[in-house]
């Protein structure tokens, strides 16, 4: 009972697009971060599905690394959002306008 790989790709693309949509529309830095995580996980879905499809472990392994790096990214991102809040009293990414965008 296996699912064809293209359905996984469709799923991952859907997840990716949801993430991208979130990235483009969310103003809250935390939601932005979550959207990015969605995009990363879409890639993970792909990697694992393809690892299964191709019958090698490379993709799974890379998915592990992706997870680790995503976590590190979140850690750094949260740190930045913290100092952002401290400086601007807000986590809205459109608030900081000290420089021209």
């Amino acid at each position: 009972m296996t699912v064809d790989v293209q359905y996984y790709v469709l799923l991952s693309m859907a997840v990716f697009c949801i993430g991208l949509f979130g990235v483009l529309t969310r103003r809250n830095a935390l939601l932005f971060l979550m959207s990015v995580e969605l995009m990363l996980n879409a890639a993970n879905i792909n990697l694992i599905a393809f690892a299964f499809y191709h019958g090698n472990l490379t993709g799974q392994l890379f998915a592990l690394f992706t997870m680790a790096l995503a976590a590190a990214e979140v850690a750094v991102g949260l740190g930045i959002i913290l100092v952002l809040y401290r400086n601007f009293r807000d986590v809205d990414v459109t608030v900081p306008r000290t420089m021209r965008w």
Binding site: L61, L64, A68, A72, A75, L78
Partner: peptide, 20 residues
């Protein structure tokens, strides 16, 4: 609370890499 949370994220993921 934030500090330990950030620290946790890092160490927890490290276990993911150690398990294999």
């Amino acid at each position: 609370y934030y500090m330990v949370a950030l620290l946790f994220v890092v160490f927890d993921i490290e276990t993911v890499l150690l398990f294999p």
